[in-house]
Amino acid sequence: MIWDLHCHLSGVDGRTPDERIAQLMEYADRMGIERLVFFMGMQWSHEPSPDDFRRQNDEVIQALTHWHDRAFGFAYVSPQFVEESLAEIARCIENGPLVGIKLWVAKRCRDEALDAIIERAAALKAAIFQHTWFKGTGNLPGESTPVDLAALAARHPTVRLICGHTGGDWERGIRAIRGHANVSIGTGGFDPTAGMMEMAVRELGPRRILYGSDIGGRSFASQLAKVTGADIPDEARRLILGQNLRRMLLPILREKGIDA
């Protein structure tokens, strides 16, 4: 069972969300990916206006229309617009089909502006995915590192958070969040550098690791390889490839009556 935490509608041909997701599903079939989580639309912006993130969420919702049996979506929101983000969570999650939120690079996640968003998402049992990177070449002004996420996690110790990209520089990223049991790592969106998964299992345990690809910019292949190619127990591999994500999403999926 493979569930992919981290999929996008970008980086693939197709004029509409429907065309794009249909193409992506062909590749997913080829790679044995059973369920996929999508967030953000066909065109991105670092600091989206409320109209922009609403448009992007509409595209994701449209993409899911014919794929409810195997695709889920997270709502893209921005701590630059807290009230509008709360309204978007109500529209897309409380009263809509989406099951989590995605926070990108508009504002560093240690900022207390995030607190209301995190609390609302947690109350709905929605998954919370925060992009993180440690870039040796320099982060964007609003781009979080795993250290920022650790600060957020300390303020919300009972809320489960996902450290997107494991910070890219995973040797630093794993260290940054390992003391926070409420943080899991997403393994998508960085090179398939060997030893990453072995260190993650050693330092975090297999239940805090979620496979994701970051398609279409990345391939399923390179990102699956981190799990299938790692020297880890088979039980850990099963947890990472799908069981952990299923366990995380199951409460909200059940509330929405989604069979999983």
């Binding site: 090179d191 060997a194 292949a221 390179s222 699956l224 390889a225 981190k226």
Partner: peptide, 18 residues
């Protein structure tokens, strides 16, 4: 690019593309 990359990355690319 093994052993710096997991060997399986290149192998799976052969499967992912038709």
């Amino acid at each position: 690019h093994a052993p710096l990359f997991y060997l399986e990355s290149a192998l799976l690319k052969l499967q992912e593309s038709d």
